[in-house]
Computed example of a mutant assay.
Amino acid sequence: MSQEGYQPPAAKTTAETRLDMHESQRASPGKTPIQVLHEYGTKSGNIPVYLMERAEGEAHQPSFIFRVTIGDVCCTGQGPSKKAAKHQAAEAALNILNIDVGIVGSTLTCVDVVVNRNVPVNPDSNGVAGETNSSPNPVGILQELALQRGWRLPEYSVLMEAGPPHKREFTVTCRMESLAEKAVGNSKKAAKKAAAEKMVAKLRSLSGSAEITWSPKPSVRFENLRNSSAEKISLLRRNPLSIPNTDYIQLMLDLSKEQGFEVTYFDIDELTVNGQYQCLAELSTCPVTVCHGTGISCGNAHNDAAHSALQYVKIMASIK
């Protein structure tokens, strides 16, 4: 065929790529970060490449670390399965590329795609990116911070949806290591961003400066608790946990200080079917311990959760 007059198709501009991404988003809602990153890579000519760096942990609780490379962006992710690790790596890459991924319950879906490959990185930020020319991206800041420090990746969960269909309000919790912050927004994306902003502010407050230097206490293995002969753990092994009007919150606080783990209480907005308050007590043990509590008030629910957690620790610390 004659090539005379033939003009090759022009490369797509960033705006055209962005428009194509929005069009495909409307056609196929509910995409995972892996799918969104692959679609972006196909359109930009840089197909993402995944590589498993290592697998660690025990057989019943494995942990996989995957690295994804797309163009000049390279990110890692960690998870209890290969798919989960790739999922986290893809989400980290999307954050760096400024392609936002929101949440729907526990499933991540593409809610807004904005391609911006010219995101400046402050050389004094120790690699914690997320700054654009207009405003910081708190979700990206937390993601990169976790990857740098080897922390668990931030977790976002929708606690509550309220309001009429045309004016919904979403409450989202951001959890990072032993810390938790929640925020309200008129969309899941807005609530997630607001919760991330509050988490960044808390980390800076705990650090005492704009530079985040706070570090979580190391996880304590149950093997360490079993081998410990310290005063509080020894008392826990010997004494019953059935004395009325006991302040189990204080007992748990004393034990956590002695053994070097942290305790965090998460209030659940929804009441039980009997109208009682609910909460979760999370211990920074390895593996993480989470126990449920209920009561006629938030304080009672915390005390009940601490009681349940103490019972669990007592069992685990007494196994020979």
Rank of each mutant, 00 (worst) to 15 (best):
L159Y: 07
V115Q: 04
P154H: 09
E155H: 15
G185H: 02
K167T: 11
S157G: 06
N118H: 03
V128A: 05
E144Y: 05
L145R: 01
G140W: 00
P165K: 11
P164S: 08
S157L: 09
S178E: 13
S157Y: 07
M176H: 05
G185T: 03
R117P: 10
V121R: 09
L142F: 10
S134G: 10
R117Y: 11
D124P: 00
V184F: 05
N137E: 11
P123F: 03
P138Q: 10
E181G: 04
Y156T: 05
R168V: 07
L145T: 03
P136F: 07
N133R: 12
I141K: 15
M176W: 05
N133G: 14
V172E: 06
A183I: 07
G130R: 01
G150E: 04
P154D: 08
P154C: 09
V113H: 04
S134D: 12
S134T: 15
N126W: 02
N118C: 02
E155A: 14
N133Q: 12
G150L: 09
V121G: 03
N137M: 14
Q143C: 08
Q143W: 05
G127S: 06
R175D: 04
M176G: 00
P136D: 08
F170Y: 15
A180T: 12
D124M: 11
H166A: 08
V158E: 14
V119M: 00
G185N: 01
R152Q: 14
N118Q: 08
A146W: 02
C174P: 03
N137T: 10
S178M: 07
Q143L: 05
V119I: 12
L179W: 02
E161F: 11
G163N: 08
V121W: 02
L179K: 04
G163E: 04
H166P: 03
R168G: 01
R152P: 05
E177S: 13
R117L: 15
L147G: 05
G163F: 07
A146K: 01
N122W: 01
L145H: 10
V172T: 11
D124F: 09
C174D: 02
T173S: 10
D124N: 12
E155M: 10
E131F: 12
G130D: 00
M160F: 11
S135D: 09
R168P: 07
V114I: 10
W151H: 09
A146R: 03
T132G: 10
N116G: 09
R175K: 15
